[in-house]
Write a protein that binds this DNA or RNA. Sequence first.
RNA 1: CGAGGUGUAGCGCAGUUUGGUAGCGCGCUUGGUUCGGGACCAAGAGGUCGUGGGUUCAAAUCCCGUCACCUCGACCA
Length: 475
Amino acid sequence: MAKDTFVEQIADIETDFPRWYTDVVVKTKLVDYGPVKGTMVIRPYGYAIWENIQKELDARFKAHGIENAYFPLLIPMSFMTKEAEHVEGFAPEVAVVTHAGGEKLAEPLCIRPTSETIIGSMYSKWIQSYRDLPVLMNQWANVMRWEKTTRPFLRTSEFLWQEGHTAHASEAEAVDMTLKMLAVYEEFAKSCLAMPVLTGRKTEKEKFAGAVATYGMEAMMHDGKSLQAGTSHYLGQNFAKAFDIKFLDKDGVQKYAYTMSFGVSTRLIGAIIMTHGDARGLILPPVVAPVQAVIVPIASKKPGVVEACRELKNTLTKAGVRVVLDESENSPGWKFNEWEMKGVPVRIELGPRDLEAGKMVTVRRDTHEKTEAELSSAVETVKALLTSVQADMYERAKARMDSRIVRANSLDELLAGVDNANFVRAGWCGCRECEDKVKEFAQATARVMDDENTSETCIVCGKKADHTVVFARAY
RNA sequence: CGAGGUGUAGCGCAGUUUGGUAGCGCGCUUGGUUCGGGACCAAGAGGUCGUGGGUUCAAAUCCCGUCACCUCGACCA
């Protein structure tokens, strides 16, 4: 009899969200903990999600002329100190290599926390003329930031990400690229991750160390907390000046280039889990799900069942569906729960009763809706289901987020808003003191500024507001 | 770094108050019966009780030290 099953353990996700999250990530075999504190081993099932994300993003980057490249893991410490804000922001969390080859190194090397510096140093060599611009590159890499507290995918000491770095001849072009990449992320989140996001500019306090302006997309998790899911930074000439990225322009004048960078990380996997998951475990969007459909044979020892399942698997595989046939010895009920926990969007049950009628049973992971369909039209049925699961997941997440964005005209209203798992929009004058006051009063931070021409007043000091800000508690 | 908590089989835990044969559930192995929502029967394998010292005839249990991990703060993608 089922006892302290996993489903029972994680049933109450609204009240014990962090616990639910950690359990589901480990028990669905997405990751395991690494021997070094704060690191995770990404298992095949989890890594497959990342591969699907890579595939989708690469296609979008290529459409913008961005090519993949790779830069070294180790960065001379002196590089980090060239841009003042950058070193201040990252120095506390870099891991440093001091010894190699059995000897102490003359100059310590830091393990990249991000690659603006080393890429900047290379760009300075590569860029001589306006004809060399723009330079549009992206790298898929691991980075390391020694964080105090960690959680799988959301904040780990080492994580995988994509960091794009571009250099341009003009400010307008670099700013345009910054916003374009933000739009790419937003569209990607929507159509691939079924995840609605809020986009906008970050406050000075929240911006990337060394940037002129940081733009971000924020996603709402089940518990109402916000997760920064992607960023795009306009770096101005800060890094160009620090690394001497100069070019001779058409007018014969030496000028500094304008650079920008943008990135998303394996944190996106955490975002998917916490946006869509329910008490039974994961719910993965079909576009990035490692397994899109699972076939569970019923009474598999009865003649013809296994054969029919294998045939169905081949048919679906040939049609481009990522499908798995679970031929393990477990009971059907066990398999149902297992694959639901792992978030597979569509389950197909096939047993003697179905075979007799030439049918199969399909069950959606998101709604648990169970329907019978003709076995002969399995490909069309499954593909249509995947499409509608993907679309419906987005619509539900969007409706939930929209219903949880509230307005506040006082700090008390703001506090009540975030206490009730909402994002709270409010006017803000733009000063650091007022921003800190909100943090202190409501444990909420400014996530994005989504209206920069507001006529409102500041929620803290009552002066004229510069921006409408979305405040939320954040991961 | 501040406050609290936990270390006993692969995982989750009981046993510690009051010292006396190392336990339970899940998982695992073998055989059999099962299969439309986490099946059942039978037989097995598996433990330096985090670690170092002390007290005692005897320590998972009491004392002192130490290490690791978790939660909440602070810090951050």
